[in-house]
């Protein structure tokens, strides 16, 4: 069973969101997602200043087996991509909800409907059951 912290919000495409006190939103991929992807060997994060739209690919994770897009859960402007991931992409595997965050985004609009931890846990469990 993968970890699903209760203080975060989630998407159906396996991203998590953390609301920061400064109004920005930190985004990453879930434990379930990193496990399904396998050992990550390359992560491309968005550059600061990039405008992203909800649902658009804004980062790429590459495991040994395949490249996968990560979708921006919200519309807004990227404040920062995680600079640590260029040299240590495996951080997303080892600490997906902490040091493995992908980007911080300042929302430009009201947040779309997101999943609670309980809702996401159910979704991930269904997928893990196959």
């Amino acid at each position: 069973m993968s970890k699903v912290p209760s203080d975060l919000k989630y998407t159906r495409t396996h991203e998590w969101l953390r609301m920061r006190p400064d109004g920005a939103v930190e985004v990453g991929i879930t434990d379930h997602a990193q496990h399904a992807l396998g050992d990550l060997v390359f992560v491309e994060v968005p550059e600061a200043g990039r405008k992203v739209c909800a649902g658009e690919p804004f980062a790429v994770t590459e495991s040994v087996k395949a490249a996968s897009d990560v979708y921006s859960p919200i519309s807004g402007e990227v404040l920062e991509g995680n600079p640590e991931l260029a040299s240590a992409p495996e951080t997303v595997n080892s600490d997906p909800y902490g040091r493995g965050w992908l980007a911080r985004i300042m929302p430009a609009a009201a947040l779309p409907a997101l999943l609670s931890a309980a809702e996401y846990e159910k979704l991930a469990a269904q997928e893990e059951a196959g």
């Binding site: 396998g38 050992d39 060997v41 495991s63 040994v64 087996k65």
Partner: peptide, 11 residues
């Protein structure tokens, strides 16, 4: 199976 545990560890 694509992998049993970590693909890199298997390699």
């Amino acid at each position: 199976p694509l992998q049993y545990g970590s693909q890199i560890a298997e390699h």
